[in-house]
């Protein structure tokens, strides 16, 4: 099967926050905390909120900080152009913030 949807381009950043559906209980606490109404309640009760306006996210992280479930139910995803590098002093290896670590 190949994708062939009739949709506009994804907003950028694509997904400022992501939800772990196995953990999120759909309580919408993050919807109420978000200063910019980036998140909208899911029409399906108990499901993770819809990220409607990722392009208005301020990346303040309060949705994550105040999530009553915690433990990765919501994760903040800095867009690719905002991912930071560091160097391990002992080995000289370079690392960076990566999506795999953040999901």
């Amino acid at each position: 099967m190949y994708n062939a949807y009739f949709v506009p381009n994804p907003a950028t950043p694509n997904e400022c926050v992501s939800f772990d559906e196995s953990k999120c209980v759909g309580c919408n606490h993050c919807v109420e905390t978000c200063r910019c109404d980036v998140l909208m309640p899911n029409p399906e009760k108990g499901s993770p909120p819809i990220v409607l306006y990722p392009d208005e996210c301020w990346f303040c992280g309060t949705c994550v900080a105040d999530c009553p479930v915690g433990g990765g139910a919501i994760t903040l995803n800095h867009p690719i152009n905002q991912r930071i590098c560091w160097k391990r002093k002992e080995t000289g290896e370079i690392f960076r913030v990566k999506y795999e670590y953040m999901k």
Binding site: C60, G61, W86, K89, M102
Partner: peptide, 25 residues
Amino acid sequence: EGKTKIPVVETLTNAGFDPERDMLM
């Protein structure tokens, strides 16, 4: 500080950054 607990400390820590061993660019 605003905008750093989750966006900076938690993000970097979850990604493996360790201030005792690593140098932030």
